[in-house]
């Protein structure tokens, strides 16, 4: 019975598939990223147990240290979270039977809204980083 079983890779074959499939795949992917981040977040927070100084050092290293890449990662994370949230709202609405007939339009509207909000968020976050009060 397992002969036909597909691998998880099949979730990311977008060729000749519809918008719903793209939304679905990305939702799964972004979900995994968010879970990964959550544990990373715990790991970082757990440094508090080793004292305030250690924690501050770790966070400073991540935010300003030689690894500027983390800022980029933070931005990507924001993208992922906003995407996932907006699509999640769509799924919840749909599951309650709302907007089923226009679920594709709903996807675009919600994602566009979420991305606009995200840009706003990033703008303020960047202001905060520049003014040095971000932490």
């Amino acid at each position: 019975m397992t002969e036909h079983k597909a691998s998880i890779i099949s979730w990311f074959r977008f060729d000749r598939k519809g918008l719903g499939f793209f939304a679905y795949s990305m939702h799964r992917f972004s979900g995994v990223v968010i879970v990964f981040y959550l544990y990373l977040h715990y790991a970082v927070l757990s440094n508090l147990l080793r004292g305030q100084a250690t924690f501050d050092a770790v966070v400073r290293a991540a935010a300003y240290g030689p690894y500027g890449i983390f800022i980029v990662m933070d931005v990507l994370l924001t993208v992922v979270i906003f995407y996932h949230g907006a699509n999640g709202v769509r799924l919840m609405l749909n599951e309650m039977g709302l907007g089923l007939a226009h679920h594709k339009a709903l996807f675009f509207v919600l994602e566009a809204g979420a991305m606009a909000l995200m840009l706003l968020f990033l703008y303020y976050a960047w202001q905060a980083v520049l003014s040095g009060s971000g932490l």
Binding site: F21, A23, Y24, S25, H27, N94
Partner: peptide, 9 residues
């Protein structure tokens, strides 16, 4: 179901 919607496609 995770609403990929391919069935409807």
């Amino acid at each position: 179901c995770h609403y990929a919607g391919e069935c409807s496609e």
